[in-house]
């Protein structure tokens, strides 16, 4: 209990500090200090990741001409809040402007974007344990299973099964990332002096298929190769 209270206290402190940085970022942005605003929003997001903070961070990065970090920030805003229309519009605007394509999502990934990931987790856990309890508890307490219990269990099981593709979608989507800098060389091998496969532009989406040391093997729409973690950032990271 004490631990919980201590954790809640720390979290409240973090929230207050994040809020303070957020407001400082808004002020800096308003005064045209986009660099300072980006720094403040970054600090706020580090303490308390929030959709609005990432949206503002994206705006500030965009104003600084940094397309990769801007798109990453907006993607993170959408990751936290799939219904954030402003972040979605900004992404569309940026991709239209930069002639970039959005990541290609499979159907189960699209399903996973319907509600935030935490909700899916809660829904799955709730439905799973509802089913388990309804099936196990009457036996434990030596009671007969009633009709409504069995119906509720069937409903919970259906709900649980329906949430599984969304979970898989979240898992695969968590491997999507964004190239941060323009003209980033895509390496053939995970080495410092690797041969260049091609160069990728800032904001290009890719999927990290595997990692080796500081390198990720990224698959883009038309190419695949190795990038360092400084060159490619996962959205869910």
């Amino acid at each position: 209990m004490l631990l919980l209270l201590w954790g809640a206290h720390l979290r409240a402190d973090n929230y207050a500090a994040a809020e303070q940085s957020f407001q400082a970022g808004v002020k800096a942005y308003g005064s045209g200090d986009f660099s300072g605003a980006a720094r403040d929003f970054q600090e706020s997001a580090g303490k308390q990741p929030a959709a609005g903070t990432y949206q503002n961070l994206g705006n500030a990065e965009w104003q600084l001409g940094r397309m990769g970090p801007a798109i990453l920030a907006w993607e993170r805003a959408l990751w936290l809040s799939p219904g954030a229309t402003e972040a979605r519009d900004n992404l569309e605007f940026a991709r239209t402007t930069g002639q970039l394509e959005a990541p290609e999502l499979a159907w189960y990934e699209v399903v996973s974007t319907w509600i935030p990931s935490g909700w899916w987790a809660v829904l799955t856990a709730f439905s799973l344990w509802l089913v388990a309890d309804l099936l196990a508890l009457p036996g434990i307490f030596q009671r007969r299973r009633t009709g409504w219990q069995q119906s509720l269990a069937a409903l919970g099981l259906t709900l649980f099964l329906l949430t599984l593709p969304a979970h898989y979608g979240w898992h695969t989507r968590s491997r999507i990332g964004i190239v941060l800098e323009a003209n980033t060389p895509l390496r053939l091998t995970p080495t410092e002096q690797a041969q260049e496969v091609t160069r990728v532009g800032a904001g290009e989406p890719g999927r990290c298929e595997r990692t080796l040391g500081d390198y990720c093997y990224i698959r883009f729409r038309n190419a695949a190769g190795w990038l360092t973690r400084e060159e490619f950032a996962l959205v869910a990271q």
Partner: peptide, 13 residues
Amino acid sequence: QRAAADFRSAAEL
């Protein structure tokens, strides 16, 4: 230069 980089990459791996 490419050859040297290949050798270095091989050694790194």
